[in-house]
Simulated scan of single mutants.
Amino acid sequence: MIDSLPKAELHLHIEGTLEPELMFSLAERNAISLPYQSVEEVRAAYQFSSLQSFLDIYYAGAKVLQTEQDFYDLTWAYLERCQKDNVVHTEIFFDPQTHTDRGISFGTVFEGIDAALQDGKKQLGISSHIIMCFLRHLSAEDAMNTFAMSKPWHHRMIGVGLDSSEQGNPPRKFTEVFEKARQAGLKAVAHAGEEGPAEYIWEALKELKVLRVDHGVRCLDDDRLVQYLVENRIPLTVCPLSNVKLCVFDSLSDHNLKQMLDRGLCVTVNSDDPSYFGGYINDNFRATQTALGLDNQAVYQLLRNSFNASFLEHSERARHLARLDTLYQELSDD
Results as ranks from 00 to 15, higher is better:
residue 71 F to L: 13
residue 55 L to F: 13
residue 65 L to F: 14
residue 107 G to S: 13
residue 83 Q to R: 15
residue 70 D to K: 05
residue 128 S to H: 15
residue 106 F to Q: 04
residue 148 A to H: 10
residue 142 D to S: 13
residue 124 L to G: 04
residue 120 G to W: 08
residue 70 D to Y: 06
residue 154 H to L: 06
residue 117 L to Q: 03
residue 133 C to F: 02
residue 78 Y to C: 06
residue 127 S to W: 00
residue 146 T to W: 09
residue 62 A to T: 11
residue 109 V to E: 13
residue 64 V to D: 04
residue 58 Y to M: 01
residue 61 G to Q: 15
residue 125 G to D: 02
residue 134 F to I: 01
residue 84 K to S: 11
residue 86 N to C: 12
residue 148 A to M: 10
residue 145 N to T: 13
residue 96 P to S: 10
residue 77 A to H: 12
residue 105 S to Y: 06
residue 95 D to V: 03
residue 50 S to A: 10
residue 131 I to Y: 13
residue 131 I to T: 06
residue 112 G to I: 03
residue 75 T to E: 12
residue 96 P to I: 09
residue 148 A to G: 04
residue 113 I to C: 10
residue 49 S to V: 11
residue 80 E to I: 01
residue 139 S to T: 15
residue 131 I to R: 05
residue 117 L to Y: 04
residue 141 E to N: 12
residue 139 S to I: 01
residue 145 N to E: 14
residue 146 T to K: 07
residue 131 I to K: 07
residue 126 I to R: 02
residue 118 Q to Y: 10
residue 135 L to T: 12
residue 125 G to I: 04
residue 102 R to F: 04
residue 143 A to Q: 02
residue 87 V to M: 00
residue 124 L to N: 02
residue 59 Y to L: 13
residue 113 I to E: 11
residue 99 H to M: 12
residue 76 W to M: 07
residue 138 L to F: 15
residue 74 L to V: 07
residue 153 W to C: 01
residue 64 V to A: 07
residue 69 Q to R: 15
residue 50 S to R: 07
residue 154 H to I: 01
residue 83 Q to N: 06
residue 123 Q to I: 07
residue 151 K to H: 14
residue 131 I to P: 00
residue 51 L to D: 00
residue 70 D to S: 08
residue 133 C to K: 01
residue 103 G to I: 09
residue 49 S to W: 11
residue 127 S to V: 03
residue 118 Q to I: 13
residue 72 Y to C: 00
residue 53 S to W: 01
residue 124 L to W: 07
residue 58 Y to D: 00
residue 77 A to E: 14
residue 136 R to C: 09
residue 128 S to R: 03
residue 129 H to P: 00
residue 106 F to N: 03
residue 87 V to I: 14
residue 114 D to P: 00
residue 125 G to E: 04
residue 140 A to C: 06
residue 100 T to Q: 08
residue 66 Q to K: 15
residue 110 F to K: 01
residue 79 L to R: 01
residue 84 K to A: 12
residue 81 R to A: 06
residue 146 T to C: 12
residue 66 Q to V: 15
residue 79 L to N: 02
residue 81 R to S: 06
residue 151 K to Y: 08
residue 117 L to K: 02
residue 63 K to M: 08
residue 85 D to A: 00
residue 142 D to Q: 14
